[in-house]
Amino acid sequence: MPSSTAVINDIPLSSPTFFDVPPKAEKVAFFYKDLLQATALNFSRFLSPGVDRSLAETCLDQSLSNDENLAELTVQWRSFAVSEQIERIGNWCKPTIGRAIAERLAILRQCLREEEGQKKDISLDSLRAMHAFIEQIPNVRLPQISLTTEGDVYLRWKSEAGRLFSINFLDDRRVRFVIFYPNPRHSQMINRHSGYETIDTVLPSADRLCSVLEWISG
């Protein structure tokens, strides 16, 4: 068994991992939830009986404009956070691979905006999950990268011998994946598996099926 597999499989199931800690995205979501709740509370105050009608309408207009500002700020914040995350991937400890992935992501981001509108962006949760996933692989080979219409990241490794491993990061924890590999007893037959897992378990699962770590590592 390759040593890399042993490292991943040796993690006791009960020990806390990165994936048990609430991600930054959730903390930011709480912040936005508070802002939205405050806006809703303002609405209910304006609509209470006894409140001057014209004053209520002015305040409502103001509040609606605040909502638009909030939406715009959210888009700006997300765009900034995506750029920051791509930069973080570019400055990763394996600089050649990190830079290549970051450059590819920047191109794909441009394509996505061109096709789906300037407000469309790569999913931040998906991007974070991809980064956390790829950091688990020692000497990872550069994958093919693309985006779904929703802006989720998709990675694919394909080798000559009918082997394929592709993974679609649905949010900050969940992934779908597919593995093709030659049947060990019938070489002309290709085994095909697909699944739905979390980013911390997908690699051990895929590796158990067909030693995927051996051929996605360089």
Binding site: R104, L108, C111, L112, E114, E115, Q144, S146, L147, T148, T149, E150, Y154, R156, S166, N168, V178
Partner: peptide
């Protein structure tokens, strides 16, 4: 096949054949 669903060499990847929501 939109550009965001192509490999660097221009060949379509699996995402080019995913359904939208």
């Amino acid at each position: 096949c939109p550009g965001s669903k192509l490999a660097e060499d221009g060949t379509p990847l699996g995402t080019a054949f995913y359904l939208r929501r």
